[in-house]
Nucleic acid binder design. Structure first.
Lengths: 255, 255
DNA sequence: GAGTGGTCTAGACCACTGC
DNA sequence: CAGTGGTCTAGACCACTCG
C-alpha cells in the first residue's frame, strides 16, 4: 500500500539559498514518478483527478497540472478529456510504433508477428554489464527472435535482459503471448520501457542473419542497436536488431 | 511593415457552435507563426516580451505564454530567462545536430566540413514534383556535396530544391560559406527548415558513391532520404544522403 | 447533471540578465 | 535597479464523457 509522503511544506522553501532548487511542479512530478515506479497505479489505469492530487500534495490544481503536462509529453501518462488521466501502456497501437519505427514502403498496414527462436541464460560480459548497469558475471537472459510482416521475416533481434528481473522468462511464455514483447514485459514482469536510444548503421548480413531473413550473405542490412530505460533512466534492455530494408524503411521525424 | 490584425475579439467567440473551434492560445500561436513567416522578426532576433504581445493581442499574459510554450517546444522559438524570447536559428550548434544525427562511434567531437561538388538546374520529374509540391517541369536546383568529418568523407548528399526560391544558389556561394547549408538557406534565401521526415534504409554502394566515400563498390551504406518543411508544413527540400557508417552511427532517441 | 480535463484570467512573487 | 521569463495561486467558465 502507498502512503502519502508528508514533505510538501518542507520542500517548498528550498528556494533562493539552496543550490538544488527545483520548482514545486517538478517535485510533484517526481512524486508522481515515484508512485508510478512503486506500482501505486498500473498501466492502463486512471490516476486520481487533478483536484484530488492537488489536495493530497497541498498545492494548487495548476501546479499538479503542469507536472502532469510534462509526464504526458514524456508519454508516461495519457490525458483524456472528460475521462481522466491514465498510466500509459504498451498495450496500445500508438506505443507500438513509438518503439518500432519500421513502415512498409508501400504504405499499407501489415500484420506483424513475433517469432521467438531461442531463450537462454548467460553471464554478463564486460559490455553487457556496462550497458545494463550490472556487474561482470551477473546473470542475464538472452532472447533471439524474428519479426515478420505480412508473413515474411523482416527483423532479426537479439535481446539482452538483466537476469534477476527476467528470471521467469521462457520461450513458451513468448510463444503463447499474442501481445508485443514490451506488453509482455509490462504485464508479467512489471517493467515498463519508457524511453530508448538507438544507434543505426548499415552492415553486411552474416550467414546466420542471412538465413533468418532469407537473403544472400553480404546483403546490406540496417543494424539497430537499442538501449531501453525504465523509470529513473534505469537501463533494462540491450537489443540489436538487423532490419531488412528491401520493402520497409525506418521512419524518423526530426522536430 | 507589419500591421496588427484586429480580429481578436471576433475570433474569441467562435466557441460552442463553431465546428472549427480552436482555443485562443492556438489562434495566438498561429498569428505568431504568420508573423515569423512574414519575416516580422528574423532568426536570432528577440521577439517582443510576453506582456507586450499580450497587450497587442488583447489577451492575458498566460495565453501568450502558452502559445509561445508550444512554439518553443517545436523549436521555432527559443526562450532565455531574463533575456527574452528569440527566433530560433540554424546558426547554432544545437540546431546542427538536430538535423544531422550522425555521431562518431568513438564519442569524440570531430570538425565537419561541407564540400560542394556540383550545382545545376533541371526540370522536376514526377517524383520531385510530388515531393516538393511543384508541377512536373517546374524549375529545380540540384546540389551534390560531400560531408567530411575529421578530413574524411562520410556523407554523400544529393539535394533537390525548388528552383524559384533558390534561383540564385551557386556552387561558389556554398564554397565561400563557412556556415552549414541550412544556415546559408536561412540567411541568404530567407528559408528556415523547421521540421523534416527521414526514411532510412541499408543499401549497397553504387560506383559513384563508392568513389566519393572511398569505399569498395557494394559496401553497405545507410541511405537517408529526407523531406524538409518550412513554416506551414511547406516542403522545400528533398535530399538523399548516403552515410558511411564505419566510424559513425545515426543516433536516435525514442521518447 | 456530475465529474473530468482544458482554457483563460489576474495578480503576486521568484530567478535570471544586464545596465 | 528595471525588465525578462518562470512559478504559483485561485477562481471562472468551457468541452467532453458517461450514467
Amino acid at each position: 500500500m502507498w502512503t502519502m509522503p508528508e514533505i510538501c511544506v518542507s520542500m517548498r522553501q528550498m528556494s533562493s539559498e539552496s543550490p538544488t532548487y527545483s520548482p514545486l511542479y517538478r517535485q510533484i512530478k517526481s512524486l508522481l514518478v515515484q508512485a508510478l515506479e512503486a506500482g501505486e497505479w498500473h498501466p492502463g489505469e486512471v490516476i486520481p483527478s487533478e483536484m484530488e492530487l492537488a489536495t493530497r500534495f497541498n498545492v494548487s490544481q495548476g501546479t499538479v497540472r503542469k507536472a502532469i503536462d510534462e509526464l504526458a509529453s514524456e508519454n508516461l501518462l495519457l490525458r483524456r478529456q472528460g475521462k481522466g488521466t491514465f498510466v500509459a501502456t504498451h498495450n496500445d497501437p500508438r506505443a507500438f510504433f513509438r518503439f518500432l519505427r519500421l513502415v512498409p514502403l508501400s504504405g499499407d498496414i501489415e500484420p506483424s508477428r513475433s517469432v521467438p527462436i531461442e531463450c537462454w541464460r548467460a553471464k554478463a560480459g564486460t559490455e553487457a554489464a556496462r550497458v545494463l548497469d550490472l556487474k561482470v558475471g551477473d546473470a542475464i537472459v538472452i532472447v533471439r527472435r524474428v519479426l515478420e510482416f505480412a508473413g515474411k521475416p523482416v527483423v532479426a533481434d537479439e535481446i539482452y535482459l538483466p537476469g534477476e528481473t527476467f528470471a521467469a522468462l521462457t520461450l513458451e511464455m513468448m510463444e503463447e503471448s499474442r501481445e508485443s514483447l514490451y506488453t509482455l514485459f509490462e504485464s508479467r514482469f512489471g517493467v515498463r520501457m519508457v524511453r530508448a536510444v538507438e544507434r543505426l548503421r548499415a552492415v553486411a548480413a552474416d550467414r546466420a542473419s542471412a538465413e533468418l531473413l532469407h537473403v544472400a550473405e553480404g546483403s546490406p542490412l540496417l543494424s539497430v542497436e537499442r538501449i531501453s530505460y525504465t523509470y529513473g533512466d534505469k537501463p533494462v534492455e540491450w537489443r540489436r536488431g538487423l532490419y531488412l530494408t528491401h520493402d520497409h524503411c525506418y521512419l524518423n521525424e526530426l522536430g
